[in-house]
Design a protein around this nucleic acid. Structure first.
Length: 661
DNA sequence: AGCACGCCGACT
DNA sequence: GTCGGCGTGCTC
């Protein structure tokens, strides 16, 4: 008997529809109705049509009622690959979310023209084999990556903190060369590699490094900056059999690839790896789950590990790979004592650092890392020192240039006639300095030297090797040809003053990544930071620092030592959800609840902390609560007869935002 | 989300 | 008597 029933996942954000629905396949679609194709299906008698994907075909039904028929098959292309479906289901279950929300990230909208072009080229030329890449200057043990790929191993890869020159003359971070090398090894044994980077600047470097080791037809780009037709074209390319290097930002971990040899992530601690859309799955977690399911190698490349990877290394769940000969950069922490030079003092540069920078400028570019973009990012009341707020929207006030009128950094309203809400003072004073202000001052401190500013608004990817002061906000540093002759990390104290669970981890990563842009032997000066963090950077024992950081979080029961989920919504809904969790039989220490506390406009929020082993049970209970909350009528809050919408129950797993101290 | 089913107040 | 109000629940 032919398989005549299609099990369909609906493309709907409703949690109660996040399961499979059975439909009869009409004879006219018997050929096209295959797993993975897009279909349109009727939902609830009255001619409503929903979109969905066929997930499997079967001839047994576990549904008691009468089945409807598929309305139509949208296209015969199986855009939902089985391994992607398995991944989406697992990740959604793990995060109490909808599989369809993950598929929306994984599968671009259909483009008919692109699809037709792809189908008509279906007699594709067989792929030419890829050459085994040459050993990478013996940087890693000869077969380190080849073994990882052959045995589907997981590892944290320590990257040499230097820049490299590609054959075409372009300079990239050494990490990109290492990652491209690993990808080439995977393709050489006939398997694809998925390469996931936080932002497009990293992607540019990695693509350049890939082009140096792979033929152009083997590299596929799949990222959020592409137009939809381009993304769809890339997705279809991934469905072909030939091994590919698939490179992109966080959602590239969902690229279809049945024959996968490697998933590699660069700098998984970068916040851009965290997906801001529900169910908020981090690309690191997606990669870990996919690796387990598909049995490929998984490599986390970094200078400074994330606390999450450090945890996995300490559990021996993942191994570690380090260069055979480690290169230790010269990092010198300096206290921010004022400089002899008046102008340098004004620019916050201690004399030792200033001397270093001046000497290095004779030989080439010098990098100065600052915390914030803009001119004077914040203003406060000159009288009571309260942060100055916009009188329209309460956003922070700032200055665009030395002579401009103070304006709101959120809504742009000018604050020409400002009065302090707190003390009624009318005079403003500057708090902190942005890249532009630093640039002006350094321009005066180093007369005659070219000053280049790179930040979010003025992105610059590369600079040449001629002398220049390059002032960049953290994360926006250009690559310098031959590496910077000196690096000054200026705003360390201010970066550390940020309120977040991850400050120390983030700072270490920002500083390490900037240090890695220096030329071999060049000096990095870390200004105004002391203690364990500074000595970790100076000795380049970054893992040791992460180890102690993780120890602290174990003591405090903070993530990633434990997993967390935030549960928010109406008081009733949150209370009920928490009560449902307590019915699970846990060991007494494995689950605890912080709150609930009142939140601005989402009702109340509670934080649930639990061990990794209990995660799937916690997720199942909370998902059931979400479904119940969405389907049963909620009683309105007592006293409010007006139909004010009650906040819906929201659950966010691995949400570290509430742990900002 | 939609949309049907179901049990109480004004109506030809 | 019944037409339809929207509160409640389901969707193969």
């Amino acid at each position: 008997m032919p398989a005549s029933i299609a099990r369909v996942l609906l493309d709907s954000p409703l949690p109660q529809l996040d399961r499979l629905f059975d439909y009869r396949v009409p004879a006219q679609y018997a050929q096209e109705a295959r797993p993975g194709v897009r279909v349109r299906v009727p939902l609830r008698s009255a001619g409503r049509i929903a979109d969905g994907f066929i997930v499997e075909l079967t001839d047994s039904v576990d549904y008691a009622g009468t089945l409807s028929e598929l309305d139509s098959v949208v296209s015969a292309v199986p855009v939902l690959a089985p391994e992607v479906w398995a991944l989406a289901r697992r990740l959604a279950d793990r995060a109490a979310g909808n599989a369809s929300d993950i598929l929306r990230l994984a599968i671009p909208k259909r483009q008919v023209r692109v699809e037709k072009a792809w189908l008509s080229a279906s007699e594709r030329s067989p792929a030419s084999p890829c050459a085994t890449p040459a050993d990478q200057e013996n940087e890693y043990a000869p077969a380190a990556f080849a073994d990882a790929i052959a045995h589907a191993q997981r590892a944290s890869v320590e990257v040499t903190p230097l820049v490299s020159r590609l054959p075409n003359g372009r300079w990239v971070g050494r990490w990109a060369v290492a990652m491209a090398g690993a990808a080439a090894r995977s393709l050489a044994v006939g398997k694809s590699a998925i390469l996931c980077v936080p932002d497009y600047r990293d992607q540019e470097q990695l693509s350049a490094a890939l082009e140096a080791v792979l033929p152009p037809g083997r590299i596929v780009r799949l990222d959020a900056r592409q137009s939809n037709p381009d993304r769809y074209r890339s997705l279809l390319a991934c469905l072909d059999d030939s091994p590919l290097a698939i490179v992109g930002n966080r959602s590239v971990v969902y690229a279809p690839s049945a024959n996968l040899g490697l998933i590699a992530l660069w700098d998984d601690g970068d916040p851009l790896h965290a997906e801001p859309l529900s169910p908020y799955v981090h690309s690191r977690d997606a990669a870990l789950v996919r690796q387990e399911h598909q049995g490929c190698a998984l490599l986390f490349f970094s200078h400074a590990r994330s606390a999450e990877v450090q945890r996995l290394v300490e559990l021996a769940w993942i191994g570690s790979i380090a260069p055979v000969r480690r290169y230790l950069p010269k990092v010198i922490p300096t206290q921010s004592q004022s400089s002899d030079d008046r102008v340098a003092a004004q620019a916050r540069i201690p004399s030792t650092a200033w001397k270093q920078a001046r000497a290095a400028l004779d030989h080439g570019p010098v990098l100065i890392q600052v915390a914030r973009p803009g001119y004077l990012p914040r203003l406060s009341c000159a009288n009571c020192h309260q942060l100055a707020r916009c009188q329209r929207c309460s956003g922070p006030l700032g200055l665009a240039s030395a002579k401009s009128t103070p304006a709101c950094l959120w809504c742009g309203a000018l604050a020409a006639e400002w009065t302090c809400q707190n003390c009624e003072g009318t005079r403003l004073r500057a708090v902190g300095q942005g890249a532009t202000r630093t640039a002006e001052e350094l321009g005066r401190a180093f007369p005659g030297v070219r000053v280049i500013v790179a930040d979010g608004e003025r992105p610059i990817l590369t600079v040449g090797d001629e002398p220049a002061l390059v002032i960049a906000t953290r994360g926006a540093e250009p690559i310098a040809a031959g590496g910077y002759r000196a690096v000054l990390l200026l705003d360390g104290d201010r970066m550390l003053a940020r309120e977040s669970l991850r400050v120390a981890e983030d700072c270490l990563r920002w500083w390490a990544n900037a240090t890695a842009l220096a030329a071999r032997g060049a000096v990095t000066m870390l200004v105004g930071v002391g203690g364990a963090l500074a000595s970790a950077l100076a000795t380049w024992r970054l893992d040791d620092y992460l180890h102690s950081e993780l120890e602290d979080r174990r003591t405090l029961r903070f993530p990633p030592a434990v997993r967390v989920a935030s549960v928010s919504g109406s008081t009733d809904a949150v209370d009920t959800a928490i009560a449902a969790l307590s019915t699970l039989e846990f060991e007494s220490t494995s689950l605890d609840v912080l709150g609930p506390v009142d939140m601005a406009d989402v009702g109340v929020r509670a934080i649930v902390r639990f061990d990794y082993a209990t995660g799937s049970r916690v997720a199942a209970v909370l998902k059931a609560e979400i479904v119940r909350n969405a389907t049963t009528r909620r009683r309105r809050a007592a006293g409010s007869d007006r139909a004010q919408p009650l906040p819906t129950l929201k659950v966010r797993f691995d949400d570290t935002e509430p742990f900002a101290q």
